[in-house]
């Protein structure tokens, strides 16, 4: 399955999308309810690469049986997904302003009422099994669709992830691709201090997956790594994306406290200035 060809590199072609997605995210975090800032900012290039360079999805035909299916297993990154869906044409960007407020369909974890959201997520450790089900359905039907699942790294502490990791490898689901947003942090600290995940690539390999690693804010590298499936016939694929929590905002990048934020007017202005200046990492490539 080929990637859409562009005259430009992915980085050059999609950087504008990534920048606007970041602007949407900080705006949503400035609403009355706040938002999951850090883990959404770490996702931006992963989602940009997927939605603009990899996924075969069409906002005009969201139920196309031959489409690729995307699941944000780390559902708390919903605002990054909403921003990406808006940027990709599934949603009117004006709708983002209502995030978390009465009457909106945009809640802090994705729901199917939102165009482009396949299944709701939020409780961690569910997405991989769902993706495996979609992948198996496509295979039983002889359809070309692939399932892409993005997980957080802290999420990998859920045992159900490894149930599904084993299961997908046993079923030889080589139309299933998982991406780990490896920002290294969870609510209470570094993943390696809370409940260590390393050696992570080796762990996935020993579970029967084809594993690649990429700098998680480098659009060219991400599109290149994700590009086509299967990576290895008969094996599901896993990309470890090395990211920074809060990427793009120097005052929270890499900080544990970036997990959830309600930005004040002053902080929002500061965040926008930082994004405009490009001083906070993320999207730097």
């Amino acid at each position: 399955m080929s990637v859409p060809l562009t005259e430009l590199s992915a980085g050059a072609a999609f950087a504008g999308h990534a920048a606007r997605i970041r602007e949407h995210i900080v705006a949503m975090c400035s609403g009355p309810e706040g938002g999951h800032l850090g883990g959404s900012m770490s996702l931006v290039e992963i989602l940009t690469a997927l939605y603009f360079g990899v996924l075969r999805v069409d906002p005009a035909a969201p139920a196309d049986p031959d489409r690729d299916v995307f699941l944000l297993s780390k559902g708390h990154g919903a605002i990054a997904l909403y921003a990406t869906l808006a940027e990709r044409g599934f949603l009117d960007p004006a709708e983002l302003a209502g995030f978390g407020t009465w009457g909106s369909r945009l809640m802090a974890h994705p729901v199917r009422a939102v165009p482009g959201v396949e299944l709701p997520t939020g409780s961690l450790g569910h997405g991989l099994a769902l993706g495996a089900g979609f992948a198996l359905a496509a295979r039983l039907d002889g359809r070309p669709g692939r399932a892409y699942v993005v997980m957080g790294d802290g999420e990998l502490q859920e045992g159900s992830v490894w149930e599904s990791a084993m299961g997908a490898a046993a079923q030889r689901l080589d139309n299933l691709v998982a991406v780990v947003d490896r920002n290294g942090l969870q609510i209470s600290g570094r993943t390696e201090d809370v409940c260590a995940l390393e050696p992570l690539a080796q762990r996935w390999r020993t579970f029967g997956w084809s594993v690649r690693e990429a700098p998680g804010h480098d659009l060219d590298a991400l599109v290149g790594a994700l590009g086509s499936t299967p990576w290895e016939p008969g094996r599901p694929s896993l990309l470890l994306a090395d990211t920074t929590k809060g990427a793009g905002l120097p005052f929270v990048a890499g900080a544990v406290h970036s997990h959830f934020a309600t930005l004040s007017v002053r902080q929002l202005a500061r965040a926008r200035a930082a994004l405009a200046a490009g001083t906070g990492g993320g999207g730097r490539d």
């Binding site: 049986p65 299916v69 396949e118 099994a129 769902l130 089900g133 359905a137 599904s164 084993m166 079923q171």
Partner: peptide, 20 residues
């Protein structure tokens, strides 16, 4: 799917969402 009930339920949900 083996002795893996959570995975079985999630996989079944994905299958059902995929038309089965």
């Amino acid at each position: 799917v083996g002795i893996a009930e959570h995975n079985a339920m999630g996989l079944a949900a994905g299958l059902a969402a995929g038309g089965f």
